[in-house]
């Protein structure tokens, strides 16, 4: 399959290793990965902050970049950005009275998958160790990000993949389904409430004794990681893609 990588702006700029890991996993399975260079961002920050007119050029750019026949499916290592592409883009086009853009947005959304969705639903991965050679000999816990869990209904796809990584020990996170408090500009507009939510997430992560908290969204992980770092807590954060890409020969280090 020819798979277009939607790196997402935060991974592109801040966590390039996660995008590289995504490429590695897909290439390991024998697929060809392309990176449409016109891509930038899904526009979620603008939409969720209410800046709809400012979101429009960002959304249009994404649709123009991915509305091509150059690939079979698109994948992003983010539940939140994929949920934005699938749900928010058509809604924004409708709000701004652009029916043609809406149609194209729906078409792009249909071909866009979150990483675990693609791996499990399309590529049939049920055992990461066997099928991907994934190996990570450490204890992790896992935070299911809200948009993946609720907007995309990912269920246990990410957790199940992690559990089948070679050498791994997965400790269940207490109150896992509670938001970490990120919420985009919520984290600065309502910094106090956001921090209070983060504090509980950090406590719960520390209570598992894990070396790292894994997740499927770099933005939430940056938020959680920022809180862990500030409190001097031991656990690090690690993206699902980085754990899946880790092998016995090339093991990712924290």
């Amino acid at each position: 399959m020819r798979i277009a990588l939607f790196a997402t702006c935060i991974v592109d700029a801040m966590y390039p290793e996660t995008a590289k890991s995504t490429v590695k996993i897909l290439e390991r399975l024998g697929h060809e990965v392309v990176f449409p260079k016109a891509q930038a961002c899904c526009g979620q920050m603008h939409i969720n902050s209410g800046y709809m007119s400012e979101a429009l050029p960002v959304v249009e750019n994404h649709i123009n970049a991915f509305d091509t026949d150059d690939y079979d499916v698109a994948v992003a290592p983010s539940g939140s950005c994929v949920a934005s592409v699938k749900h928010q883009h058509p809604r924004l086009a409708e709000r701004l009275g652009k029916p043609e853009l809406k149609e194209r947005a729906v078409a792009v959304g249909k071909r866009t998958y979150e990483l675990s969705q693609l791996l499990v639903d399309v590529l049939g991965i049920t055992d990461a160790a066997q099928q991907l050679g994934s190996y990570f000999p450490d204890t992790i816990t896992y935070h299911p990000s809200c948009h993946g869990m609720r907007s995309l209904q990912l269920g246990d796809r990410q957790l199940d993949l992690l559990k089948t990584v070679g050498g791994i020990n997965v400790e269940i996170l207490p109150e896992a389904d509670q938001c970490c408090g990120f919420g985009g500009t919520f984290s600065i507009k309502n910094a106090d409430v956001s921090s209070a939510m983060l504090e509980d997430k950090v406590k719960n992560i520390c209570s598992t004794g894990a070396s790292a908290c894994a997740g499927g969204d770099a933005s939430c992980l940056m938020h959680i990681g920022g809180g862990l770092s500030r409190t001097g807590a031991k656990p690090k954060t690690l993206h699902l893609a980085d754990i899946l890409a880790s092998t016995m020969e090339e093991t990712v280090t924290l």
Partner: peptide
């Protein structure tokens, strides 16, 4: 508001 309770990691040398 962000750095009131969170650090920001150093960015990478090079983007993806």
């Amino acid at each position: 508001g962000w750095t009131q309770s969170r650090d920001v990691p150093a960015p990478p040398n090079k983007s993806f």
